[in-house]
Design a protein around this nucleic acid. Structure first.
Lengths: 214, 214
DNA sequence: CGGTTAATCGGACTACAGTCCAGTTACGAT
DNA sequence: ATCGTAACTGGACTGTAGTCCGATTAACCG
């Protein structure tokens, strides 16, 4: 297991970066049949269009399948369930933020102190969340907390955990990363959006990070 | 609105206590028809029995209605939806913890320093959560983040916010209370239960509280 | 280029949450 | 005691997520 000790050597930092990269990279394109790939693209197109036009909540899976010119079985075979489809649609948009974290300018990208990077990330993620709230909520709706198993969440979690560890190696950075991400879950944000606008949310989370990492 | 200033005067503390009491008290029993009350009890009995026997996830609303000897319309009229039923079933069990907070011995009850009370509460709630996880998850499953509107959550939130304010009046205690409760949401806990047992969860949250309140 | 195989396709099917409304029943007024 | 009415009841109905399996078709090999 990637142990907790090993202070900030250059190579440890590189390992962290590599691990994040692996989480960000899409699964290796395992020899898919041509028609399957075509259908996948048609479905994503149709879903994106319908979601934009009618709102995520008002689009049934049947509607997506029909609009894509594809049977229902195909839709569910390729994406598992409704939340899987949402994840796939979100994927492209998440990549932008992931790229900024991996190689963008500080404080979001590498180079800034951990506490600053963490604050910058939480602010950026909060913005992402508000922009795609409906889609994120659907992607979280799953039988057994699917959100926490998919690549995107694991990327955010890893990034946050690494920043915490860098500033406070004595803490349980793995769990605390979950705890810091939890307030940015879709349901809570949807319930609190009116009462707590983006600015107030970010300020409060900043104060939490400051208390934790100094 | 109940303003943020007003330091820890005795009366402010009493106001806090009264506000909590109000959130804990069940809605005034507005002249219910006798048969309605009887059916409500029959439904709760049946639900509790079926949940215990087959697991929460394997019990359909039809099954509850049938077992209670009641029509489906009645079930939905009285409890709104599936999550409303779960809330009602949980209600009695939550009251125990609420009573301990309002009038039990410290550190859970009044008398201990805010940071201690907060830690004690988070530990107690984490235990409650693990005991009733399935039911809590159903109670959170709702169209528009219903969890955050119901009395039980508002009680927990109020309590946490009050403790934060008492120790750190400079912070946004309202939002931070949500942030501290968020890690104890049902979905996250379900996903993390295996990897992070109760002890580790509580320890990590303790360190978070310590960082925040000292 | 034709045959073999295994993955894919797609629409009929199931199960369940939640709605609706016509009939019924309890309660207050007379 | 009787009546009027508002609230309650319950089962038929709707819409949707997700499953299943026979028919289809792409990829690979000789």
């Amino acid at each position: 297991m990637d142990d907790v000790n090993g202070p900030q050597s250059g190579s440890a930092s590189d390992n962290d970066h590599d691990e994040l990269l692996r989480l960000a990279a899409p699964a290796p394109p395992t020899a898919t049949r041509a028609d399957a790939a075509r259908n996948r693209a048609k479905i994503l197109d149709a879903a994106e269009r319908l979601f934009a036009e009618h709102g995520v909540g008002a689009v049934s899976m049947d509607a997506v399948a029909t609009a894509a010119g594809v049977g229902k079985g195909t839709l569910f075979r390729r994406f598992g369930d409704r939340s899987g489809l949402a994840v796939a649609v979100l994927d492209a948009r998440e990549s932008v933020l992931q790229a900024a974290i991996l190689g963008g300018p500080p404080p979001l990208g590498p180079g800034a102190p951990p506490a600053d990077r963490l604050r910058a990330f939480l602010a950026a993620y909060a913005e992402f969340l508000d922009t795609h709230l409906d889609l994120v909520r659907v992607s979280e709706t799953a039988s057994a907390g699917a959100r926490y198993r998919i690549g995107a969440y694991r990327f955010w979690h890893r990034h946050v955990a690494i920043q915490i560890r860098a500033a406070r190696p004595d803490l349980d950075h793995e769990y605390l990363a979950h705890a810091l991400l939890a307030p940015l879950g879709g349901d809570l944000r949807a319930a609190l959006r009116d009462e707590y606008p983006w600015r107030r949310t970010v300020d409060a989370l900043d104060s939490l990070v400051t208390a934790l990492l100094g």
